[in-house]
Amino acid sequence: MMRFDRVSVELGDKQILDQISFSLQPHKITALLGRNGCGKSTLLSCLTGTKKYTGEILLDDRNLALMTPRERAARVAVLPQVLPKVPLTVRELVSLGRNPYLDLGRHLTEADREQIDRALSWTGLEQLADKRVEVLSGGERQKAYLAMVLAQNTGIIVLDEPTTYLDMGAAADFAQLLVTLKTRHKKTILIVMHDLTGAVEFSDNLVVIRDGRIAFAGCASACVESGIIESVFGVRKGTCCKDGRECVLFYR
């Protein structure tokens, strides 16, 4: 289980994150919500050690900051918001996901290749495996990077706005893929989202950040009931019927 314990980040004299504490429930999807600039991406940067912070991030009661980069990378995969157009093929990119497991001079083993093929298959990218990433569409590129993260084969997957470039259908497929990863492959997923309706629909838990502080952390239905989302985002809540069941939606 991963736990954020009083995590704070200062940039100059500005407090970006202030005493953030919450836990990720194992094998569940947790959506991280908040308005632009509230510190969501900064919080994710703490996970890769690229941002200095105070407080602790604990992984099974071990301090993440005290792990070696490779040890950390074998347990937590973080996909940031900006995904560069690199001159690699999709397969080469996905194979980079095996980096935490490769010692100096070691080449990919058969098991590594199987993991890479599996990641390509889960994301439906087999046909694009030999295409260069720099010529893919935004949505395809996002999937290719997700496949890389899946090849990393970590228990915890952290995604920063992964559906930005996806059309509505692709975003729904993507959400379904996350649900499959959670249920069938027992992954714990933390995902930064701006689609409030989607977040409530597909997440088990919600963490809402307002001005660098936790406004809510708990199960999605309790969050919806609390009215926090309306207050933080200035939206209104409604309901609709989807496939015979009632769903919550947010609008302005």
Partner: peptide
């Protein structure tokens, strides 16, 4: 070549 954030996430110092 993936940039700092991704490289760090993949276990590179």
């Amino acid at each position: 070549c993936l940039g700092d954030a991704l490289a760090a996430s993949l276990g590179v110092n």
